[in-house]
Computed example of a mutant assay.
Amino acid sequence: MSNRGTEETYETQIGRAVKASNELVNNFHRDGVDRGCIATFNNTMIIRQNFTENETLIHRSLDGLVDVADGGTRLYDSMVGVIRTFHRYGNRTRPWVLVVVTDGDDNDSILSYNRCIGEVSRLFTNDTSNFLFVLGVGDNVDSRKMEEV
């Protein structure tokens, strides 16, 4: 059962993140060609959907996230963790796009902001075929923090 399209599902901050992520998949993913992976982060980073070319599986994984928000936010640790997952399981011969949907808040990471940015640059954005997009969701998005990331 899909939650896509039910407006009351999207009233929470995580719901808005799910809605924005579903729209990104609808607009950019080429079923059977591109591979997507869904990861969440709060106190830990969890891979919710391993890399797949199947758009339906990606949407199903996203739709299952509306009740997941809990605990602190390890934004910096998780960004680096996802990039390391790309290195282990991604197809390194193709361009990578990392989309982080967040309110920009990090209140639980072990990595500092500067260490995170250094790792993201070294492992990901240093390669000109890789792209990082950070999308802010929620009522209190700190645009300064979003720009920094």
Rank of each mutant, 00 (worst) to 15 (best):
L57R: 09
L57D: 15
L57Q: 15
I58Y: 13
R60S: 09
R60L: 13
S61A: 15
S61N: 04
L62D: 09
L62S: 04
D63E: 07
D63R: 00
G64V: 05
L65P: 11
D67R: 07
V68E: 09
V68I: 14
A69K: 08
D70A: 11
D70K: 15
D70N: 13
D70V: 15
G71L: 08
G72Y: 15
R74S: 06
R74K: 12
L75V: 02
Y76L: 14
Y76N: 14
D77Q: 08
D77H: 06
D77C: 09
D77A: 08
S78A: 09
M79Q: 06
M79K: 02
V80M: 08
G81M: 14
G81Q: 14
V82F: 03
I83A: 05
I83S: 05
R84Q: 14
F86M: 11
F86Y: 12
H87T: 01
H87Q: 10
R88F: 01
Y89S: 15
Y89I: 10
R92D: 02
T93D: 10
T93E: 12
T93G: 03
R94A: 14
R94V: 03
W96T: 01
W96C: 01
W96D: 03
W96Y: 15
V97I: 06
L98G: 01
L98W: 04
L98M: 15
V99T: 09
V99E: 08
V99H: 07
V100R: 00
V100Y: 01
V100W: 01
V100T: 03
V101M: 06
V101T: 13
T102L: 04
T102E: 03
D103M: 13
D103G: 14
G104Y: 08
G104C: 11
G104P: 10
D106W: 06
D106V: 06
D106R: 07
N107S: 01
N107W: 12
N107A: 04
N107R: 06
D108G: 08
D108S: 13
D108M: 07
S109V: 02
I110H: 12
I110V: 13
I110A: 11
I110K: 14
L111A: 08
L111R: 15
S112V: 09
S112G: 11
Y113L: 15
Y113I: 07
N114A: 15
R115Q: 13
C116E: 02
C116K: 03
C116I: 10
I117F: 08
G118S: 14
G118V: 04
G118Y: 12
E119Q: 14
E119W: 10
E119C: 04
E119L: 13
E119N: 10
V120G: 05
S121H: 13
S121N: 10
L123Q: 11
L123G: 01
L123R: 11
